[in-house]
Amino acid sequence: MTLYAVTFYVLAAIVVLSTLLAIIQRQVIHAVVYLIVSFFATGLLFYLLGAPFLAALEVIIYAGAIMVLFLFIVMTVRAESGEDKGEIYQWLPAVILGIISLFVGGVLIFEIPGSKTGLSTGMATPSAFGQFLFKNYWFPVEIASFLLLIGLVGALYLGRRESRKGSEDRR
């Protein structure tokens, strides 16, 4: 077992554990904090798997931007969360189906030829990645930027304060 493998298993354990803890939290705010840990560890995994640029992005976008957005919303939206108190039947079907899928998926994964060969280390430097991206995927990048713009506009539109007339109509 190499040092790399040890790092991987430690990180994988952190990721799985923190995600598991996140999804069973009753308070959304706790879940978000656990998830930040999970995403940090995933970012380190990305680094280990030779994607330093994506590791940075993972920390900045997922752990930074997205989760902070969630925190903001949790703080702005004061409403009953709608959770029932610890009912097992609520979890049961999902967990059973999940375990079946996991079993079948695991079997499938290890049937793939070459899945048991080890990954050798490698590193895509950010500049190489950037060169590659803009040489081969410049058009999808443009489309992605457009998608972000549309997301921005859509969020603005949905989040705008409604006119007084509209709110009167509803009541």
Binding site: L48, G82, G105, G106
Partner: peptide, 30 residues
């Protein structure tokens, strides 16, 4: 040599199913 390729995929599928279970069993939209 880090780890076998299958192990990473297994981690990915575990994570994916955790997310799926979360989406399904929770009632809170967030």
């Amino acid at each position: 040599m880090i780890v076998p390729y299958g192990n990473v995929l297994l981690l990915a599928i575990i994570l994916f199913l955790l997310g799926a279970v979360c989406s399904i069993s929770r009632r809170n939209l967030l």
